[in-house]
Nucleic acid binder design. Sequence first.
DNA 1: TTGTACGCGTTATCAA
DNA 2: TTGATAACGCGTACAA
Lengths: 346, 346
Amino acid sequence: MKQKVTLKQIANELDVSIGTVSKALRNSKEISEDTRQKVQAFAKLYNYRPNNIALSLKNRKTKTIGIIIPEIVHNFFSKVIRGIELVANKKGYNVIVGLSNESFSKEVINMEMLANGSIDGFILSTSKQTMLNQDYHHFTESINQGMPIVMFDRVISEIPCDKVIVDDFEGAKKAVEQLIAKGCGKIALITTKDYVSVGKLRTQGYLSALDSHKIEAAASLILKISEEYDSEDQLEGLESEIENLFKDNPDIDGVFAVNELYALSAMKVARKLNKTIPEDIQFIGFTDGMLAKHATPSLSTVSQHAQQMGEKSAELLIHRLEHEEEEESYQTVIIETELILRNSTQ
Amino acid sequence: MKQKVTLKQIANELDVSIGTVSKALRNSKEISEDTRQKVQAFAKLYNYRPNNIALSLKNRKTKTIGIIIPEIVHNFFSKVIRGIELVANKKGYNVIVGLSNESFSKEVINMEMLANGSIDGFILSTSKQTMLNQDYHHFTESINQGMPIVMFDRVISEIPCDKVIVDDFEGAKKAVEQLIAKGCGKIALITTKDYVSVGKLRTQGYLSALDSHKIEAAASLILKISEEYDSEDQLEGLESEIENLFKDNPDIDGVFAVNELYALSAMKVARKLNKTIPEDIQFIGFTDGMLAKHATPSLSTVSQHAQQMGEKSAELLIHRLEHEEEEESYQTVIIETELILRNSTQ
DNA sequence: TTGTACGCGTTATCAA
DNA sequence: TTGATAACGCGTACAA
C-alpha cells in the first residue's frame, strides 16, 4: 500500500526543500529546468496530488457547497441536486448533502455541522416545520457569519439572500385557466396548508384565475391537506379526504392539485367513483415528477424545471463566492413554468 | 457581520495563550476553574465552534463519506443515499455526492477529486461504462492508497472491498417461480445487456427458475435492451423492441423485467395490443421505485430495500474507518429481496 | 536558483 | 496552572 505522497516526502527523497518542490510543481520559473524536471517526474511517478484539506485551510475556501433539502427520495429535489452538481462540478466545486427530513431541528443541526468550515455556502430549501415555526435564526446567523445562502423553491422572503423560485402564482393560474378554457366550470383545488409558501402562492394563482373569469370561488371546493397525509404510506387518509370533497361536490368537473401525489390520488378516487377522465373531470397537477407521465391516464402538469432551478442556484452561489468583495445586491430569479398537456385534460 | 471566531481571537481578547483556551474549552482539569469559566463564557457568547477543516488536517480524518453513483434522479439511488445519510449523520459523518452519469471518465474524475484528502472513504455503485470497459484501476488505486471502498448493487467481484448487494439471482428466481405458480408457461424476460452485473444475475435467476420447473428457455423470449433506450425520452425505442417481442411470441403469458421502466413499458405495450392484465399476461418487475405502486394496474415487484442497502453500506464503511488497525477481511452483505404482489399478477 | 519561515486553526506535549 | 512549540500539508514572501 503506497500511501498518498506529500511535498515533504518528495523533498526528502530528492534532497531538496519543501518550498523548492512546491515551486517546481507549479512551474515557477525561479526553479532551474533541471530540478523542475526531476521533481515533476518524481511527483508524477508517485502520483502526487495536493491535499485538499490543507489547501482549504490555507485558502480559507473549501470549494464545497452545502445542500440542505427536506427529502431526497423525491423527483423534484433529486433533479435540483443534479442541476447543482452539474454546475458545481464544472466549476471545480463539490457538493455535500444534508437532509432535514422536514424537521426544524435536523435542519439546524445539519447546517451547524457544515457551517464550521466544511463548506463555502449553502443552497437550501426550507423544511415544512421551519416554515411553520417561522424561526429563521439559523439562516440569519449563517449569513451574518459571511456564509452565503441561496434558497430555492421553498424560500423565506424576509431572509436577505439570493433566491430561485418558479412562478408558482402564474403557473397555477395558467393551469386553472387551461381548465376553464377546456370547459370546466366547477374547479376544485387540492393544496397544502397555507404555511407552505409554494402551496399558498399556487392557491392564490388558482383564485386569481377564477376571479379573472368571473367564476366565484367556493370554500367548499378548496381542500387543504394536512401534512400528515403526505407520506406514501398514508395514502388512505389522503384519499378519503379527497373522496369527501368529491362526494360533497358531485358536480366538480376540474381539479387542480399543487403536487403530483395529490393529483394522482384525486384521479384514483375519481375513477373509483366511476368518473371518466377527462370527459367527466379534468386534472392538472403541479409537478416535475415521473409519475405524471406514466399515470393512466397520463397527467397534465405544470412543470417546474427542477434541474434548471438547481443549475441557477449553483450559478448564483458560486458567483457570489467568487465575487465576494463586490457585495452585489441579492436577486430573486424566477424560473418559468411550463404547461405540459397530457391525457388528463381534453 | 461577526465573522467566525477562532481560538486565537479568544486568546487575544482574554489575554491568555491559545493553548489555554483550547484546554479550557475541552474541560481539561489542568486549567483553573476561574479561567475555564471565563473562557467558556466568552466562547459561548461568541458562539465558538472548532473549525472542521483544521481538525481534519490535524486528525487526518475528514469525517466525510464520498458517494459516487451513476444517477441521482432515480428512486433506487436516492433511497440508498437516504440510508447512507441517515447512518452517517448519526455517527457524525457528512456525505459528499458525486454523479458519474454512467460515464467512466466522470467516475474517475469525481473519485480523484475527492480522494485527495476530502473524504475518508467511498461508497459507490459502478457506472455502466466502467463495467463495459472493465477498467477498474481507479478502484484499486484508491484502495491501495488506504482509502476504503464499499460497493453496492453494481459491484465488481474482482475488487477487494466490502460489498452490499441484493440476492439478484434469488430475487429473480422467486419472481419467475411466482409467475409459474400462477399458471404462466411462456414467460418472457426483459433485461439489460450482460455486462451489467445485476442484469446478468437476474437473467440467471430467470433461467434457473425455468429450469427447475422443466420449462425450456427460449432465446426468442429473452430481450436484452441496449443502454441507449434507458432514458425517459427514448421510450419509443424501448417500446418498439418490446412490441416486436410480443408480436413474435403472441402466446407470452408472463413477463419478468429487471427494472421498473422495462416492466411498465411492457405493460403499456401489452395494453396497446389489447391484452388484459393480469388475465392474459402477468408482470413482475425488479424495482424499488414509486411507479409500480401507482401504475395501472399496479405492478408486482421484487423489492430491493434500497434504503437498507445504503444503511448497511454506511455501517460497513464507518466500521472499517474506525477499526483500521484491525484489518478485518472484506465481507459481502446480501440484502434479502421481497416479493410484493400487486395487481399485475393473479 | 534554492532554502527558510510563516500562517491557515487545531490539539498535544513538554517546559515554565 | 499556564505558556510555548511542534505538527498536520500547503503556498509564498523573503532571505540566502
